[in-house]
Simulated assay, not measured.
Amino acid sequence: MKSILTILVAILAGESAFALCPGNIATTTLYNMDGLSRQGCKTGRGKAGTCIIPFISIAADEDHNRMGTIISMPGMHGKKVKLPNGKIVSHPGYFLIEDTGGAVQGRNKFDFFVGNPPVNATSFGNVENQDVPLVDKTVCIDAKKFVKIPKYKPSEMKKREEDRMINPEYKRAVRKMEVFWKAAKLKRPDLEEVIQSAGPEAAPSSTRSGSGVQ
């Protein structure tokens, strides 16, 4: 009985700590392919119906986050990530909301998809990336600040869907994430279409920076 009470207190304390985090600092965990239904995808399909991308796709609470929204996290910009093909690249600091889950609740709660290996053995684990581990060992740290980049600006949402113009910042972010879904050999015609519609304006810029999450 004592052990059960101890566990309950720990859980409640953790939930309280998460609740106290500012809305622009994420409380995060990691998840891999265990338990995911593949549905024709190497990695499985998220709630958005797309093939989720290692180190890019994240799960979020639909009550607070629209599927397809990009999360910009400057604290992750430039962090070295080992892709499925073994190549080491710098992370752009952008993530894409494409999944959800019963344990992902709240406006600043995100689960980061890492692909196939055990979560802590990946580049986002607390072994590989000790300076900014995307797990809940430290709550409310500034390195996990974030901002959301919507696909369409509010003014565009008032228009008919076929008349909407994609947010230029969104296009640039998608371009910078391209190496990840191509390395995983995933088909993402939706993102390819965003890039093709962007033209030169979506080309990566060395002067741009993002904003962050926990």
Rank of each mutant, 00 (worst) to 15 (best):
M1S: 12
S3K: 12
I4F: 14
I4Y: 14
T6L: 12
I7H: 13
I7T: 15
V9P: 13
L12F: 14
L12C: 12
G14C: 08
F18Q: 06
P22L: 05
G23K: 12
N24E: 09
N24H: 13
I25T: 07
T27Q: 05
T27S: 12
M33P: 00
D34I: 02
S37I: 09
R38K: 13
K42T: 05
T43C: 03
G46V: 06
G46R: 06
G49W: 03
G49P: 05
P54G: 04
F55I: 04
S57R: 01
D61F: 06
D63I: 05
H64W: 15
M67H: 09
T69Y: 01
T69N: 04
I71L: 11
G75M: 12
G75P: 12
M76P: 03
H77F: 14
H77E: 15
G78K: 11
K80D: 01
K80A: 04
V81E: 02
P84L: 06
N85V: 06
N85M: 10
K87P: 09
S90K: 14
P92H: 02
G93Y: 08
F95T: 09
F95P: 14
L96Q: 00
T100K: 10
T100E: 06
T100V: 09
G101F: 04
A103P: 03
A103W: 05
A103N: 06
G106M: 07
R107C: 08
N108Y: 07
K109R: 15
F110K: 00
F110S: 01
D111I: 01
D111A: 07
F112L: 10
V114K: 04
N116V: 12
P118F: 10
P118Y: 09
V119S: 02
A121I: 04
T122D: 02
S123F: 11
F124C: 06
V127W: 09
V127Q: 06
E128A: 15
D131Q: 09
L134C: 10
K137A: 07
I141V: 05
D142N: 00
A143K: 04
K148R: 12
K148N: 05
I149W: 03
I149K: 00
P150F: 00
K153R: 13
K153M: 07
S155F: 15
M157F: 05
M157N: 08
M157H: 06
K158S: 12
E161G: 08
E162C: 10
D163R: 13
D163T: 09
R164I: 12
R164L: 14
M165R: 12
M165Y: 06
N167V: 07
N167C: 03
P168T: 05
P168E: 06
Y170S: 05
Y170P: 02
Y170N: 03
K171V: 10
R172P: 02
A173I: 02
V174S: 01
K176Y: 06
F180Q: 02
A183Q: 03
A184L: 05
K185L: 08
K185H: 10
L186V: 11
L186T: 13
L186G: 11
L191T: 00
E193A: 05
E193R: 01
I195K: 09
Q196N: 14
A202F: 02
A203V: 05
A203K: 08
A203D: 10
S205E: 04
S206L: 08
R208Q: 10
S211N: 13
G212D: 01
